[in-house]
Design a protein around this nucleic acid. Structure first.
Lengths: 214, 214
DNA sequence: AACTGTTTCAAACATACGTTTAAAACGAGA
DNA sequence: TCTCGTTTTAAACGTATGTTTGAAACAGTT
């Protein structure tokens, strides 16, 4: 019991509620009620609402980035002068991400939603926090992607990477409603892992598109 | 003077502030101060904050959708039994969109940001409003896209359309910060129109990707 | 059993919000 | 100039928020 359970259930409740309604629309009273703890517990354990938000991100991102860093090091080690292959890099990234929400695959969707919120919603403190804390791993990944796509100009590569990021964050963050739509429109739902499977060829093909026409 | 100016400056201020901070984080006091009007003016002219939000969307979307509908009718008329071509459809959409923010191209970025917010942020009333008001035009467009991509399964097409939507909304809504990043990283900025130019081959190639591998 | 540091709790605090109100200012038509 | 409907204004209302407080409950140690 004691501290660990309170902290954990606050994080669980906050993660879910934030992803459903956004940060500003979720009150500490919503969170503490859902978590079954006292209102003051958030400020006692985390200090402020802002710190709670950052803690929610850190709980997911820290293990994910450590894992990813290891995987990337492994790739770099066995490269041995060879050029890395793009589909492999994408697979590796998606596999690591799927693994990060190891208890339920739904958790990746929840987290992608949070990530989308972090970018669209104001929350300047959050962007600064994420950049400072997890920027380096992203840089490492980008270096490998650059090596894997030598035929692209720096400019094209820059923009296409962000196109890919957009397609990913948007669809995975809306996966719940999108699979519901898919089920309704064509009688065929999908889970997150299947959506990722569909996403990868789309992204790989887009990244390697010819420069001008389609 | 009189009504028109007050209403207009409220809409202008709201559009900009909403796109910068989100809906919940922008107070009516922020908006009225920026607009240089009295606090009560919003409730007097629009009725409530919710209605203001919808009015911001309507001001952009209504002329855009009317324009798009005409263009689509024209395409359909001159089809004459032929199959529509995908790149043409995408161009048509992007041109219409760029035209909708006719005074400044920056406005399209602002509006895309709002669109992203509408999806990520709670705002159930907004999604219902958008669906009811502008759903039909979207359906028409989708019918043409379906005709233009007969080789795709309904499932693949459904998901890839949303991948495209995600890449578009995400990058155009973040165009301001992204072009700043691009300028910093590779000494080469871009305006919205140029980003759209880069986007189209990426999207077209992704939509036509082979089913399995990349 | 008494003490100590930590965690929980109910209650209150100050602040910011969206909305309402009633009076004042305005502008066009008689 | 007076009138009437519209618009603007300053002030207030009720509510919900994040945060703080001080006492109570708890767990481990001597």
């Amino acid at each position: 019991m004691a501290q660990k359970d309170t902290v954990k259930s606050i994080l669980n409740a906050a993660e879910e509620l934030f992803s459903e309604r956004g940060f500003a629309e979720t009150s500490l009273r919503n969170i503490t009620t859902k978590a079954g703890v006292n209102l003051a517990a958030v400020n006692y354990h985390f200090g402020s609402k802002k710190s709670l938000i950052q803690a929610v991100f850190a709980r997911f991102l820290t293990p994910f980035c450590e894992d990813l860093e290891q995987e990337l090091d492994a790739v770099q080690a066995q490269l041995d002068g060879h050029v890395p292959q793009l589909p492999g890099l994408l697979m590796l990234l998606s596999q690591t991400a799927l693994r990060a929400g190891h208890d339920s695959p739904r958790r990746l969707g929840i987290f992608m939603r949070l990530l989308g919120l972090a970018y669209t919603q104001g929350q300047g403190h959050l962007r600064r926090f994420l950049q400072k804390e997890y920027g380096p791993v992203f840089k490492t990944f980008m270096r490998l992607v650059t090596a894997a796509t030598p035929e692209l100009s720096d400019e094209d590569r820059f923009w296409r990477i962000h196109f890919m990021l957009g397609a990913t964050v948007f669809t995975l963050s809306g996966a719940d409603s999108l699979t519901a739509m898919a089920e309704h429109d064509l009688g065929k739902g999908s889970d997150i892992a299947q959506v990722v499977d569909k996403l990868i060829p789309f992204l790989a093909s887009g990244l390697n598109a010819p420069h001008q026409a389609g």
